[in-house]
C-alpha cells in the first residue's frame, strides 16, 4: 500500500435504516501506522460504522475507502486486506492452537509453507510452542487474546480492527497486548480499536468519540483532555455522551 495514502478515509459516510440515521455524515482520515480509537456510547452507531468499513454493509451515501479500496464497489478486496479480532469471538475453542492458525491462514489464502513458518515464529515469540496441540478452550484468557491478535495479523493486513480487545484481562497481560500492537504499527500496520474502557483510549494516537451517529470529537488523547479541561478521556467521554438521546432506551 502507498505510504502517503490514508489507510482509511471517509467523507459524509451515512447509513440509514428506514428513517433512522444510524451513522450520520461521518468524515475522518486515518494514516498508515496509526492507532485509532473509535469510541461511543451503546447505540451511538459504532458497530454500523465498522460494518461499513470492513465491507459487510453497504453505506446509504457518502464516500469511504479502506486500504485504498472503495467500500461501495470493492468490498471483497477490502476483506482480504484487513484483520479482525474481538474479545467475544476470535478463535475456535474446540480447535487446537495449530488448527486455528491453519484455519485462518487458509481463509486468507496463505500457502501452507507460509502458514507453517509463521506459526512456528509466532508460537516462539509468544512462548507458546508447547501449547501448539492444546485446545484453545483450555488456555488462560491472556494467552488466548495474545494469540488471537497474532492470528488476526497473520496475513500481514494493512489494517487490523480490534473490538474491545482487552476487557477482563489482568494489567500485565493487557500491557503485553498493547506492546504487540505497538510492534505491528512500527511495521506500518494501522490499528482501529473500539472500546468501552476509556483508559484503553489513552493508548491510541488519536481518538474519536461518536454520539447519536455523529463524530462529536476527534483528536489526540492529550488534545482532547486539553480541549475539555479534563484529567482523562473518561471525563471527556462522559461530558459528550451524557446528553445522548439513544442511550436512554
Amino acid at each position: 500500500m502507498d505510504s502517503t495514502r490514508p489507510a482509511i478515509k471517509t467523507r459524509n459516510l451515512t447509513r440509514k435504516f428506514g428513517d433512522f440515521s444510524a451513522v450520520d455524515n461521518i468524515s475522518f482520515e486515518i494514516s498508515k501506522g496509526e492507532i485509532f480509537g473509535f469510541l461511543g456510547a451503546n447505540g451511538a452507531g459504532k458497530t454500523t460504522a465498522i460494518r461499513m468499513l470492513i465491507g459487510l454493509l453497504t453505506p446509504t451515501s457518502g464516500e469511504a475507502s479502506v486500504a485504498g479500496f472503495d467500500v461501495f464497489t470493492e468490498a471483497e478486496a477490502i476483506k482480504n486486506r484487513i484483520g479482525y479480532m474481538s474479545q467475544k469471538f476470535s478463535l475456535y475453542a474446540d480447535l487446537t492452537v495449530w488448527e486455528n492458525i491453519r484455519l485462518y491462514g487458509g481463509i486468507y489464502g496463505l500457502p501452507m509453507e507460509t502458514v507453517k513458518a509463521k506459526a512456528d515464529d509466532l508460537l516462539k515469540t509468544l512462548q507458546l510452542s508447547d501449547a501448539r496441540d492444546k485446545r484453545i478452550g483450555s488456555l488462560p484468557l491472556g494467552w488466548k487474546q495474545k494469540l488471537a491478535f497474532s492470528v488476526a495479523v497473520l496475513h500481514e493486513p494493512d489494517i487490523v480492527f480490534l473490538d474491545e480487545p482487552t476487557g477482563g484481562v489482568d494489567p500485565i497481560t493487557r500491557r503485553q497486548f498493547w506492546e504487540q500492537i505497538y510492534e505491528v504499527t512500527e511495521g506500518g500496520t494501522t490499528v482501529f480499536v473500539t472500546t468501552h474502557y476509556m483508559d484503553e483510549a489513552e493508548y491510541c494516537d488519536r481518538v474519536s468519540i461518536m454520539v447519536d451517529g455523529v463524530i462529536e470529537a476527534l483528536d489526540t488523547p492529550s488534545g482532547l483532555k486539553e480541549e475539555f479541561k479534563a484529567d482523562n478521556i473518561e471525563e471527556v467521554f462522559i461530558e459528550l455522551a451524557r446528553g445522548a438521546d439513544r442511550s436512554q432506551n
Binding site: 456510547a41 451503546n42 476487557g167 477482563g168 462522559i238
Partner: peptide
C-alpha cells in the same frame, strides 16, 4: 459494569 458504556457505568 462489564460490557456497558462509560456513562452507564458511572
Amino acid at each position: 459494569t462489564t460490557g456497558v458504556d462509560a456513562v452507564s457505568r458511572q
